[in-house]
């Protein structure tokens, strides 16, 4: 049914997206918490820098990543020397590009839900003897879980669709960095491969649709549990 080529592209895309989200989620929660709950001077600056990937052309992000993470780049050199890691032109590099472009979307969604949490419930929890940490993971975190979910879904969608930064940073290497959008791009460039492009297009639609439906059901469940007040 699916060709080996398609399976490769799909599994690579999913692998990149899941890796990107797993690494960026904890940082996104922390950043969202900082922005929603803390007052500090550099807050407007952090907010602006955070939104850069949303407004910059993806190719600029890709270029900046390429410059800093290539074996000659500052971070790339340091990574290579300290951990013997080289992520340029690898699927990890694609995950990094995905994580960066999807980060602002994730933070925005989580931040909004942080701001919506009733601080009075957290106050009540602390009068019941709960430390700040216990309050966070027993009250705050469950209450923001719908926000986390929608942040993850947004990031997942953005990651699956990521093209510009990825192709600039890690190029379009079969079996290594050729995710679904890159594979489609290759087919479109190839004369006579319109059918394959169409098939990939349908696959992309199905993945996106099922992710949205799954998140809708999950979110409904969560909200039903939380709206019991």
């Amino acid at each position: 049914m699916l060709t080996e080529f398609e399976i490769q592209a799909i599994s690579l895309s999913l692998k990149v997206a899941f890796t990107a989200i797993s690494f960026s989620l904890p940082i996104a929660i922390l950043t969202a918490w900082l922005l929603a709950r803390c007052q500090f001077h550099a807050k407007p600056l952090l907010d602006a820098v955070l939104h850069l990937p949303l407004v910059l052309p993806p190719v600029v992000i890709g270029y900046l990543l390429l410059v800093s993470f290539s074996p000659q780049g500052a971070i790339g050199l340091w990574l290579n020397n300290t951990f013997n890691i080289d992520i340029s032109f690898s699927w990890q590099g694609a995950a990094l590009a995905s994580a960066i472009v999807s980060f602002p979307l994730m933070v925005r969604a989580i931040r909004l839900s942080f701001e919506a949490v009733d601080y009075k419930l957290e106050q009540a929890a602390s009068t019941l003897g709960a430390s700040k940490f216990k309050v966070f993971y027993t009250i705050t975190l469950p209450l923001i879980s719908p926000g986390i979910l929608s942040g993850v879904i947004l990031a997942f969608a953005r990651s699956l669709g990521e093209f510009g930064a990825t192709i600039t940073f890690v190029s379009n290497i079969p079996e290594v960095t050729r995710t679904i959008p890159l594979a489609m791009y290759s087919f479109i460039q190839t004369p006579g491969a319109e059918d394959q492009a169409l098939r990939l297009c349908i696959i992309a639609v199905i993945i996106a649709l099922s992710a949205l439906i799954a998140s809708y059901i999950l979110e409904l469940k969560m909200r039903r549990k939380l709206s019991r007040n």
């Binding site: 009068t127 709960a130 209450l143 007040n229």
Partner: peptide, 20 residues
């Protein structure tokens, strides 16, 4: 002393039960 270490109970005007 931090709130959670004071061993003082507090019943608020609204019940403030945890909805989840």
């Amino acid at each position: 002393t931090a709130v959670h270490l004071r061993q003082i109970g507090y019943v608020f005007q609204q019940a403030r039960l945890f909805p989840h």
